[in-house]
Design a binder for these strands. Structure first.
Length: 372
RNA sequence: UCCCCUGUAGCUCAGCCGGUAGAGCGGGUGGCUGUUAACCACUAGGUCGGCAGUUCGAGUCUGUCCGGGGGAG
């Protein structure tokens, strides 16, 4: 994978790194848009690649249920199936089974659950989940893990962590048998809920295994921002620094900045794309809800400093009109804009790390963006 | 001039045999963080055209005036 740290901030843990995946080189920090079903909702693949995005996230659980791995196998893998020749990280689906399955039972060696689509019964082992991602030919694979809610009692958190660790070891063993086939990289996931001793144990254990990258899971699951920051800082400080760091499921500009400050290299989130579809847009002066009446006659772009297609061609008034009339173009333009905004934010952050002025940038950004 | 229909929230309209009003849209607010989400939740607006009757009680019945729409001449 050839992981290299290109630049480190002197007064924070922020860093610029690069590594190579089967479908091209990754420069971090990087935000991965979420395309659960192989499509980032409301945007074409070309729109993504044109704006420099070369790593998206898909979901093993969703793709396993629909269309099923047989079809993806017949298509020649996920890249061919969805017609995306850049990198794909596939999440395992542990989080989905945790968050949405109406029925689930986790035992020591497998997970049983019912489909959210038709209620059908399914069983997956950690090996099955790696096998699915092998069929997909994912560039980054994630192992099945057990995610827990913030209010989970200690004993249950311990149990979930132990199962996660056991499955991590099994996943890596299975992956090692086949990884040469296509070069996909398996990341480990740190759990431990909101207990520092468990976070420490998990970070150390996952770091001790032979994963090419380390992910932090189980954060940003409903806890207050201060708790998130506390556990992020604590956990990120304990993972192997010679590997890429991936914080799962964030976020907003504030969360992203916090993550980068703590040495996180990669993150993914539905937030920018989902709020876009729901009519909320990022600007350097904070978010705006474009459907509000006060934008009805604003003939300027969403964000003057933005170079996205929406900002180059359309006014706030028109985009509001698209949303009010329920035109599909509204969510499309909004999504493109929000992804561009996050990309621009991250490239500014990268520049600030280059010049070792990350904290100055953070202060300046939050000063104008606000902390909403 | 006569006849019929009609006047209820910003808009379009519901309100059975009378018991002090609702919806959709629009407005406002909040939410969305390893996607079951172009979604969800909450909220503000009405002396029911005016006046006078009947009635214990009228948006609902009666009279009349005013404003719309249609028809006949």
């Amino acid at each position: 994978m050839n992981f290299k740290i290109l630049k480190s901030s002197s007064n924070t843990k922020a860093r610029i790194t690069e590594f190579t995946l089967p479908h091209g080189k990754i420069l971090t920090p990087i935000f991965m848009p979420v395309g659960t079903n192989g499509s980032v909702k409301a945007v074409k693949h070309k729109t993504l690649s044109d704006s420099g995005i070369n790593l998206i996230l898909s979901n093993t659980y969703h793709l396993y249920l629909r269309p099923g791995s047989d079809i993806i196998k017949k298509a020649g893998g996920l890249h061919n199936f969805i017609s995306w020749q850049h990198n794909i990280l596939t999440d395992s689906g542990g989080f989905q089974i945790f968050s949405l399955a109406p029925f689930r039972k986790i035992t020591k060696d497998r997970i049983k659950f019912r489909s959210h689509i038709d209620g059908s019964y399914h069983t997956l082992t950690p090996e099955d989940v790696i096998e699915l991602q092998r069929v997909f030919k994912s560039d980054i694979l994630m192992p099945l893990d057990v995610c827990t809610a913030p209010d989970t009692e200690y004993k249950k958190a311990v149990n979930a962590m132990k199962i996660t660790h056991d499955w991590a070891a099994r996943s890596i063993e299975y992956w090692k048998r086949y990884k040469q086939e296509w070069g996909g990289q398996l990341f480990g996931i740190v759990q431990g809920n909101f207990y520092k001793d468990l976070r420490k144990e998990s970070a150390e254990y996952i770091s001790s295994l032979d994963f090419p990258g380390i992910a932090i899971g189980g954060l940003s699951v409903g806890e207050p921002f201060d708790i998130f920051k506390d556990f992020l800082e604590y956990t990120a400080g304990l993972i192997d620094k010679s590997k890429p760091h991936y914080l799962m499921g964030i976020g907003t500009p504030e969360y992203i900045i916090e993550a980068i400050e703590n040495g996180i290299d990669m993150f993914d989130c539905v937030y920018p794309t989902r709020i876009a579809r729901n009519g909320t847009l990022f600007t350097w002066n904070g978010k705006i809800a474009i459907k509000k009446e006060n934008f009805a006659e604003e003939f300027k772009p969403i964000e003057e400093k933005c170079s996205c297609f929406a900002c180059k061609n359309y006014s706030r008034a028109f985009i509001r009109h698209l949303f009010k009339t329920n035109e599909i173009l509204g969510p499309m333009l909004a999504t493109e804009h929000n992804l561009t905004f996050i990309n621009d934010l991250i490239s500014e952050i990268r520049s600030s790390i280059e010049t070792d002025t990350f904290m100055d940038f953070k202060k300046r950004f939050l000063g104008s963006y606000g902390s909403n």
